[in-house]
Design a protein around this nucleic acid. Structure first.
Lengths: 222, 222
DNA sequence: TGTACATCAGTGAACGCGCGTTCACTGATGTAC
DNA sequence: TGTACATCAGTGAACGCGCGTTCACTGATGTAC
């Protein structure tokens, strides 16, 4: 390769069967999303700017408009990808726990926190950016799939409670979702309660444990 | 009063014994805080701008610097006032429930949600603005007083659990705090879960109910 | 294989905007005598 | 009571900044013949 050869990924252009790459940059679209996620993680949804994301991807701000309608659209796509990963992770955790409804439920809860830890940029884009889940059908679909897993796990488990004292599964999963979200917001990422002597993982584990005992789903004397 | 008389609040100037008012505006400091709270509530901590708060208070942006070091300082003071109100409300609720530890605890939880509902601007400034609680001693003190009430209620209640199966009060209150915060974030203010068929109040009430049953603090068959 | 043309991803300059902050000032209010 | 002075809350103009967005363009890549 002579020194004058321009640097291009996959010289020769994209071949069918390979993921489609941009003509010039080589998949700028995803590079922009990745940059956005990194910036959102570092500076919050506030601090994120389209211009900086473009710069980080090695491109002029105007180039962004070849792939997104604007700043909001870029954040929304980052959130959508987050929901997809989120749903995948929880689905996998659910399957891991099967056929035990209890094991599936607990694994799903742990997956929630694990996702928030491992994909903080996605988490913030999803839950703290102010993007409405109903912004696009795509986004609503992905979000629906994610919450569907949690609801399935709850429904599944609630069948083990005698019908006359069984709370609705939707309430059930709302409780666990709220607890998980609260733990993430307050006890991870240097939040308000981060000085507490317990890890977020411990708090979620014990919190759900007490809750399930309250439902009569685990023995009272553990 | 002739038509030419300039409009001044409390014509004649402040008298001793009355709250000190600004010379020109009449308590601009608090007017700016109030404007900030209203803007934060309406547009989020992102959308809030110092210039707009000044405008809403009927004053030039530069005037803000007579009372605050800058934008962040203004938000921090709004948050501080929030923590004071928050602590007051929870303290009052706690006292209302006394001498029953259980009643005090439940009232405190309800007060948490009531505060978030009634003072959304303060709540956002406190928990979603990214302001560190350790920014100033004043702020840290106010925040400490608020969380102290919750911890006191938890400690109080935990004495009714047999020592060998009693969870640490700090863990206890962290669980309830996380659940409350999660319910506020997800199920009020048109959040992600706002389409759920339950009100935030119902969710918190039932969630804490199940949790307390899990601790053996309320009878299993209610 | 080679040539002419079409496509379109990314450029670079420009825009209008509102932001936070600074500064010398002004003029109403408070105070000393 | 009146006058001279001190204080200091708020003004208004100006600043540099980075933002999101637009536009005509360029030039690398892909395609038809």
């Amino acid at each position: 390769m002579s020194p004058a050869t321009p640097i291009r990924p996959f010289a020769g252009g994209p071949k069918s069967g390979m993921p489609k790459r941009g003509y010039h940059h080589g998949n700028l679209r995803q590079a922009l999303i990745d940059a956005a996620l990194q910036l959102i993680e570092a500076k919050g949804p506030t601090g994120f700017t389209l211009s900086e994301a473009a710069k980080q991807a090695g491109v002029t701000p105007a180039a962004v408009y070849r792939h997104f309608e604007g700043r909001e659209d870029l954040i929304a796509e980052a959130a959508r990808q987050g929901y997809e990963i989120f749903a995948d992770l929880m689905e996998y955790a659910y399957d891991t726990g099967q056929p035990s409804a209890l094991a599936s439920f607990e694994a799903t809860g742990r997956a929630y926190l694990a996702f928030a830890r491992r994909y903080p940029g996605h988490y913030v884009a999803m839950f703290e950016s102010g993007i409405s889940v109903n912004r696009t059908p795509d986004l609503a679909l992905a979000a629906g799939r994610a919450s569907g897993v949690l609801e399935k796990a709850a429904e599944n488990l609630s069948e083990h409670i005698p019908p006359e004292k069984r709370p609705p599964a939707a309430m059930f999963s709302a409780h666990v979702w709220a607890l998980s979200h609260g733990v993430v917001e307050l006890f991870t990422r240097g939040g308000v309660g981060a000085r507490a002597p317990y890890s977020a993982e411990d708090l979620l584990e014990t919190g759900i444990g007490v809750y399930l005992r309250g439902l009569g789903l685990v023995p009272p004397d553990d």
